[in-house]
Amino acid sequence: MSALRWRQSGGRGVVGPALFNALAPFGRFVPPRWLRRPLRVVSKLGEGAYRAPPYTATILSAVLLSSSATYGAYLGGHLDGFVQGVTARTGFAVDQIKVVGNQHTSEIDILDKLELNGWTSLIGLDVEAARERIASLPWVEVAAVRKVYPHTLEIRIDERQAFALWQQGTALNVIERSGRIIAPFTGGDLAKLPLIVGSGAPDHAPDLVARIDGFPELATRVKGYIRVGDRRWDIRLDNGITVKLPEDGVDQALADIVRMDRENGLLSRDVVAVDLRILDRVAVELSPEAATARMAALKQKPKALNRKPEKKI
């Protein structure tokens, strides 16, 4: 390793000789590798062998002014806006947004939560704050915001899973399996969800739905689950028939109604309700038309019994 040699010039500078005299007491000084190049530049400046490039003074003045402006913005609390403005105008303004995973969440709502103004810089954007704002949307369960330089923002969300529509009074809301309200019902494909009605229904509906799912013939026909007195359930079928379930022994009642429908087509007849609340019997409520026809038939039956047979000639 060669030592750095210091030469005294004939009066062409004072930095080189002064530096040489300062290091003379140390004898043959060997500086570290990282310090050698800066020392050579300083030595050449002292000897007058190195000339500054053109416009050096202008560049240094610009650096001084910009650093002063930055420091002033920092002291005044405007540094974030300063950084946003500079970086946005140098090619880092957000001009492309990719949204992945949204089905019920509008892209317009997501853009509103990003709070972009057309000159928002990707560098200065606080992605954690943006993520928290997006996660506050009703359907969003998990949100992730990622910067893709130089000017793209990628949003990926996981939405909540709708379980049913809950009607309470005049309010109709979409709920999760846990009973948590997601958002008001707005139509569309959500109309295919099962309807549960009544106070306390969301807490008990998942258990009843799971029980009815064990009877596929019946499950495909159920359109509504009505909680009665927060004690028991009525289920409404697709043809308008109401099946009144008991407070206890629900599994046995479901098995009985499926068996009777399979053997006698009970749920396809002209009836309004089937009452299974009493353990050892089934009560059937006929529709008004069917009840009228049945009463007429019953009235005609005694006449037919009392009619004397005609004599044969």
Rank of each mutant, 00 (worst) to 15 (best):
39 L>E: 07
186 T>Y: 05
251 D>T: 05
270 D>Q: 13
264 N>V: 05
203 D>V: 06
266 L>D: 10
255 A>G: 13
301 K>Q: 08
114 L>N: 14
61 S>N: 14
133 R>Q: 08
216 P>G: 02
296 A>L: 06
40 R>M: 14
255 A>C: 05
121 S>E: 09
15 V>H: 11
123 I>L: 13
295 M>A: 13
117 N>S: 15
55 Y>R: 12
166 W>I: 00
264 N>S: 07
213 D>M: 01
162 A>E: 02
89 R>H: 12
252 Q>H: 06
35 L>H: 12
84 Q>V: 09
80 D>K: 06
182 I>R: 01
128 E>W: 13
31 P>R: 14
176 E>V: 15
108 I>Q: 13
74 Y>G: 06
196 I>K: 00
190 L>N: 10
227 R>A: 00
151 H>I: 04
250 V>N: 08
293 A>L: 08
218 L>M: 09
114 L>Y: 05
19 L>G: 01
162 A>R: 03
22 A>P: 02
262 R>T: 10
144 A>F: 03
283 A>S: 14
137 L>G: 06
292 T>A: 15
75 L>V: 08
86 V>D: 10
83 V>N: 09
55 Y>N: 15
169 G>C: 06
106 S>A: 15
224 G>T: 00
85 G>T: 15
184 P>T: 03
217 E>S: 10
275 D>H: 01
247 E>M: 04
70 T>V: 07
58 T>K: 10
70 T>W: 06
76 G>I: 02
218 L>K: 04
163 F>W: 02
161 Q>T: 14
36 R>H: 09
135 A>V: 04
61 S>A: 14
243 V>D: 00
169 G>P: 11
287 S>P: 02
292 T>L: 12
210 A>S: 10
71 Y>P: 08
206 P>W: 00
60 L>G: 08
185 F>E: 02
236 R>I: 01
276 L>R: 04
272 V>Y: 03
40 R>H: 10
43 S>D: 15
258 V>S: 10
130 A>T: 02
252 Q>P: 02
178 S>Q: 03
111 L>P: 10
47 E>N: 15
115 E>G: 06
289 E>L: 12
33 R>M: 05
190 L>R: 08
194 P>M: 03
66 S>F: 12
72 G>I: 09
284 V>W: 01
186 T>E: 14
44 K>R: 15
307 R>E: 09
78 H>Q: 14
267 L>G: 07
308 K>I: 03
142 V>A: 03
104 H>P: 03
74 Y>W: 13
191 A>M: 04
8 Q>G: 08
159 E>N: 06
27 G>R: 01
152 T>C: 08
169 G>Q: 09
85 G>W: 15
288 P>A: 14
230 D>E: 06
5 R>V: 07
270 D>L: 02
300 Q>N: 04
14 V>F: 00
123 I>Y: 07
42 V>H: 13
167 Q>K: 09
209 V>E: 05
233 W>D: 00
87 T>S: 13
224 G>L: 01
312 K>D: 04
151 H>L: 07
76 G>F: 08
281 R>H: 07
283 A>Y: 12
278 I>P: 06
